[in-house]
Simulated assay, not measured.
Amino acid sequence: MSKSFWETVKGRRSIYGFSNEKVVSEDRIEQIVKDAVKYTPSAFNSQSTRVVVLFDENNRKLWDFTLEELKKLTSEEQFEGTKAKVNNGLASGYGTILFFEDQNVVKGLMDNFPLYKDNFPVWSEHTSAMHQYVIWAALEAEGLGASLQHYNPLIDQAVQKEWNIPENWKLVAQMPFGKPLGEPGEKEISDLDARIKIYK
């Protein structure tokens, strides 16, 4: 990584247009994912996050499944815009990372620590979010763009069947990534004084 930590944090943005040019190797993407899963924290060290990485034809299949499901829910006119968004901004990249949470792990914690029972599903979402952010920032550091999508539960069954996903893995998010085709627009930042309180 050639970028500093804060350069990476500041540079990470939602990118919706990218190419499938392999800016870094598949092995490098695999290592990023493994390191993120290994070192990202989780409540009670639950390690409940599961990740699937799809390249090439597998990536295309995911977005074909997505389009099939969306076509059932939209008018013909609306679908044309949706199809363009998916084909030109999500399916056009290098790959997609799927984030899951293992519900067996979550249930086990709920059973073993009843005092915190109601919190574990929420903490599971926090764990997933941290994994998403770490991987997203790491992709940015490598010169890749990404966005975070949520086509679950529409695509859950197709994903589960195609890639032999265990039933206890709950799909949380999809992160398509690739070489950015342009720069993101200026980000609007709301007043920090209204969002932060500091007492000295």
Score class of each variant (00 low, 15 high):
residue 52 V to Q: 09
residue 100 F to S: 14
residue 95 G to P: 09
residue 143 G to N: 01
residue 61 K to A: 06
residue 62 L to P: 08
residue 123 W to I: 10
residue 110 M to L: 15
residue 38 K to T: 13
residue 70 L to H: 09
residue 47 Q to C: 00
residue 78 Q to N: 11
residue 156 D to P: 01
residue 124 S to R: 01
residue 104 N to Y: 07
residue 74 T to M: 04
residue 155 I to V: 15
residue 131 H to N: 15
residue 56 D to Q: 02
residue 127 T to F: 10
residue 60 R to D: 10
residue 61 K to R: 08
residue 118 D to H: 08
residue 113 F to H: 05
residue 146 A to L: 00
residue 72 K to R: 11
residue 50 R to E: 13
residue 124 S to A: 14
residue 97 I to E: 13
residue 125 E to D: 14
residue 148 L to Y: 08
residue 127 T to M: 10
residue 50 R to T: 08
residue 34 K to I: 11
residue 116 Y to G: 06
residue 83 K to N: 08
residue 58 N to F: 06
residue 103 Q to E: 15
residue 143 G to M: 03
residue 107 K to H: 05
residue 153 P to D: 12
residue 80 E to F: 07
residue 89 G to N: 12
residue 148 L to K: 05
residue 115 L to G: 01
residue 51 V to C: 12
residue 139 L to Y: 02
residue 84 A to L: 10
residue 124 S to I: 03
residue 152 N to L: 13
residue 80 E to G: 06
residue 47 Q to T: 00
residue 40 T to K: 09
residue 58 N to T: 09
residue 78 Q to E: 09
residue 44 F to T: 05
residue 67 L to E: 07
residue 66 T to Q: 06
residue 79 F to E: 03
residue 58 N to P: 04
residue 140 E to I: 00
residue 37 V to Y: 11
residue 125 E to C: 07
residue 114 P to L: 14
residue 66 T to D: 08
residue 91 A to W: 03
residue 98 L to A: 10
residue 57 E to K: 14
residue 65 F to H: 11
residue 121 P to W: 13
residue 138 A to N: 01
residue 129 A to T: 11
residue 140 E to H: 04
residue 122 V to Q: 05
residue 105 V to G: 02
residue 156 D to V: 08
residue 97 I to A: 14
residue 92 S to H: 05
residue 89 G to Q: 12
residue 63 W to L: 01
residue 119 N to K: 00
residue 110 M to Y: 14
residue 126 H to Q: 15
residue 131 H to C: 11
residue 90 L to H: 07
residue 87 N to M: 06
residue 126 H to E: 15
residue 89 G to I: 14
residue 62 L to M: 15
residue 44 F to E: 09
residue 62 L to A: 11
residue 106 V to G: 00
residue 40 T to C: 13
residue 80 E to M: 08
residue 54 L to P: 04
residue 45 N to F: 09
residue 117 K to V: 03
residue 155 I to T: 15
residue 84 A to W: 02
residue 152 N to Q: 15
residue 89 G to H: 14
residue 118 D to K: 11
residue 34 K to T: 07
residue 76 E to D: 10
residue 64 D to H: 02
residue 142 E to L: 01
residue 119 N to Y: 02
residue 151 Y to I: 04
residue 103 Q to W: 14
residue 117 K to T: 06
residue 37 V to E: 11
residue 39 Y to R: 15
residue 77 E to P: 09
residue 69 E to Q: 10
residue 135 I to P: 06
residue 36 A to L: 05
residue 95 G to D: 07
residue 63 W to E: 01
residue 111 D to M: 03
residue 113 F to E: 07
residue 89 G to T: 13
residue 38 K to Q: 12
residue 138 A to R: 01
residue 109 L to S: 06
residue 141 A to K: 06
residue 156 D to Y: 03
residue 52 V to E: 11
residue 77 E to R: 13
residue 152 N to T: 15
residue 78 Q to D: 05
residue 73 L to W: 12
residue 156 D to M: 02
residue 105 V to H: 00
residue 117 K to P: 01
residue 80 E to L: 13
residue 65 F to N: 06
residue 134 V to D: 14
residue 102 D to S: 09
residue 92 S to I: 03
residue 60 R to V: 05
residue 45 N to H: 04
residue 98 L to P: 09
residue 83 K to G: 02
residue 58 N to Q: 14
residue 74 T to C: 02
residue 106 V to A: 03
residue 112 N to A: 12
residue 88 N to Q: 08
residue 41 P to G: 06
residue 112 N to K: 07
residue 96 T to L: 01
residue 124 S to N: 03
residue 55 F to L: 07
